[in-house]
Design a protein around this nucleic acid. Structure first.
Lengths: 348, 348
DNA sequence: GCTGTGGTTGGGAACGTTCTCACAAGTCGC
DNA sequence: GCGACTTGTGAGAACGTTCCCAACCACAGC
């Protein structure tokens, strides 16, 4: 109890060096595994470190090396299963490569996002994976690559920015979904999306419109619903679109929360699925197979989306300085029981 | 283009000071908002910082101040909605107080957890919130508080450790759920939980046993199922427990994944819920109200669990050094359509 | 015996901040 | 008009590590 110099601060590499009877430089080499150290000294230092309970200070290390082995991840809301899955994909790949993940929720708010990016940069993350909230050229996003911090865009692209991106072909996926419904004879197809059109939803809307056009169906604006981003609002819009004089016979939703709302809305409106109304959801969550009928969906490789983003970022950190690449992953259209032939009285 | 000294490294406070014609100490005071600086100098420094695009280096700052404004969060799996919600609760409270969250998945693996705790400590997080995988006295957990890094246990307690904990009364919740089923006349009540009993599940098992004992029901070990932690395994165990000569008339599950499996298992076994088998789930997720029948559940205040953990940790960081406290939050028992009277032929 | 070589080791600078201290220039009270 | 206090400023140490470089040693080659 007599040799305590600092009461409750961690021992430093200097303390270890002193205990082992070597210089700090040598102790650092022994513990850091770089440079040349004789086996005898290495063991002596290791023993001293063990005995003192030495833990390296990454902060000091990062100051010198210029790398923190930390990547920033900015998503809208980790509570949303889509982002949770993507985050898991990111974390797994990052962790395997010795990186940790600093997580921030932006709630789709550009101001929050901007502040988050700034904070993450001040913490000197080695790179950033971000699902950008706004599609306008965020100066805060362009700034980092210029300073040498690579960015990978997750799920959404920002036109003006020079950065890698991992996305799916939302336009094509949506067009395909509409094609499926058209093939079943539907002509009154509603779109249920959320207000404040984020990039992916814009693309899905575009795909919806293209799908209609390909089928020669005129757009009915009353069938395009942009709900507040809550389950209850989605339910209301669904009930409303099913209560039209000429109601929708099919509903295409643009994400998992809207799918949930559409499903519940059909239940609440007392419409049989798929006899009276077909539903196509976006994202394949666990529940889609235990509801009755099970949900037809556009499934995204969500986990892989995150994993690919992390791999891309790691490649940049490893020195890849080629031109920005956009990687487009494939979606899968899974037909289940929630889509069926359009009701007879509503077609032709 | 002529005055660039470092090509693509961020300007330092020294660069700002030089540009503003003051010392680094003064520039630091002006930008850091501490000490005394004259308004004129403050403006001059701010202008120089703005013009150079100065961003403070938190690493260097943390070295001096000894605080990183970062907290570590170790959960089993961020993809699990339970942890995603808790993480959101943590992140919101932390963010409001100016803290960021470093997230690690442990996959319930003690070795991974141990390594994570070590890494987080090396990165000098100010504190740690952890849902510990193992209930044995983790030396890696005891270590940190001794070094002055506070820990808050989330959702699970570790008996030997001196740390705050935020939990729910799992024993009582489980006992109550069993009581509900007993009250409906059930005497063949199965328990569906997962292998490698984590702390919460041990408590829920204990509550289950107590519930049976209170009702004077003898334990039938064939009704206690510990599935591999996958949906498919949960389905199999459910089908199996419903295929007994004297099958279960009710199933109580110990978490949301097991609930999903039980629900699907009943479907696959062709048993009507609740006419032939009642189901009580643990955790109230979005899907529980859109399946038919909707699920009776023990609902936990998951988000609040995380938020409370963060508040507790912040209190510690603010200097609270009272004895460790365990905060027990209330669960809610929500009766929906998945529980009903026991089938006549199976009772008394 | 002198020089060269390769493996070890230590001294000290560097990273970018904050903090402590000393000092200069006012300001106030008497 | 002099000490005590306040306010603003700068010099330099400190945080704990890594990196650069010089020095040392042993040994081989000539």
């Amino acid at each position: 109890m007599s040799r305590r110099e600092r009461p409750r601060s961690s021992p430093t590499i200097g303390d270890v060096a002193k205990a082992a009877g070597v210089s700090t430089a040598t102790a650092a080499r022994a513990l850091g595994g770089y440079g040349a150290v004789s086996p005898a000294v290495r063991d002596r230092v290791a023993a001293a470190a063990e005995q003192l309970g030495y833990r390296r200070n990454s902060l000091a290390r990062s100051m010198i090396t210029g790398t923190t082995h930390t990547i920033g991840l900015v998503v809208a809301d980790i509570e949303n299963p889509f982002f949770a899955r993507a985050a898991r994909g990111v974390a797994d790949v990052a962790h395997a490569a010795g990186y940790e993940v600093l997580l921030v929720n932006s709630d789709e708010d550009p101001a929050t996002e901007r502040a988050a990016v700034r904070t993450l940069f001040e913490k000197r993350v080695d790179g950033l994976i971000i699902a950008p909230a706004s599609t306008d050229v965020g100066s805060h996003l362009g700034e980092l690559p210029k300073r040498g911090t690579p960015i990978v865009l997750l799920d959404r692209v920002v036109p003006g920015i020079e950065a890698d991106a991992i996305v799916v072909d939302n336009e094509r996926a949506a067009r395909g979904a509409i094609g499926h419904l058209v093939g079943l004879g539907h002509r009154r197809i509603a779109l249920l999306t959320s207000q404040g059109l984020i990039h992916t939803n814009q693309m899905r809307l575009a795909g919806y419109l293209q799908g209609l056009e390909l089928a020669g169906i005129l757009v009915d604006e009353r069938l395009i619903r942009m709900a507040e981003y809550t389950r209850e609002a989605a339910v209301r819009e669904t009930v409303s679109v099913l209560a039209l004089d000429d109601p929708a016979t099919a509903i295409f939703t643009t994400d998992n929360l809207m799918s949930l709302g559409a499903f519940e809305g059909a239940q609440r409106a007392g419409r049989a699925v798929p006899e009276e109304v077909s539903i196509v959801g976006f994202d394949d969550l666990e529940w889609t197979t235990i509801v009755r009928p099970p949900l037809t969906v556009v499934a995204q490789p969500v986990n892989e989306l995150g994993a690919a983003a992390a791999r891309r970022l790691l490649a940049r950190l490893a020195g890849d300085d080629g031109p920005p690449r956009t990687l487009t992953l494939e979606t899968t259209f899974i037909v289940r029981g929630s889509t069926g032939p359009a009701p007879v009285h509503a077609t032709g």
